[in-house]
Amino acid sequence: MAYSEKVIDHYNNPRNVGSLDKGAEDVGTGLVGAPACGDVMKLQIKVSADGIIQDAKFKTFGCGSAIASSSLATEWIKGKSIDQAETIKNTEIAQHLALPPVKIHCSVLAEDAIKAAIADYRAKAGAKPKAAE
C-alpha cells in the first residue's frame, strides 16, 4: 500500500513528539489504543486559564498512518480552544492525509486521543464538561 506524501512527511518529520508533565494541573493526557494493530497513542495538551491549547505533544507506537494522524492532530489543536479542538473529526484527519480505508481507524484513534486528553484536563480542572457527545 502506498502512503500519501503527507503521511510520509509527518512520518519522517513528526511534529510535537514528546511528553508534557502528566501531573501538572494545566496538562491533560489522553491514552488510547487500537487493538487490531497493537497501536498505542499518547496525546497531551497544555491549556491556558482561558481554555486555549498552548502546547500539544504526542507519543505513538504504531504504523505510519497512526503516527501521521497524531502528529497532524497536535498541529491542528495548538492555538485552538479546547471547545474548538473537541470538534475535530477523524474524517477531516483521514481526508487531509488521504488515508486508505484500511487505515481510517488510525484517524479515529487520533480523534479519540484528543477527546481523552480534553476529558482528562476537564476532570483535573474540575470544570463542568460540556454535554456528552
Binding site: 491514552l31 488510547v32 489504543g33 487500537a34 487493538p35 487490531a36 497493537g38 498505542v40 499518547k42 507519543k59 507506537f61 481507524h105 479515529v108 484513534l109 479519540d112 481523552a116
Partner: peptide, 14 residues
C-alpha cells in the same frame, strides 16, 4: 475497529 481506553492496559503497553 474500536479504540480501547483501558488506562492500566495502555500504560503497560506504552
Amino acid at each position: 475497529g474500536k479504540t480501547v481506553a483501558d488506562p492500566a492496559l495502555l500504560m503497560e503497553a506504552m
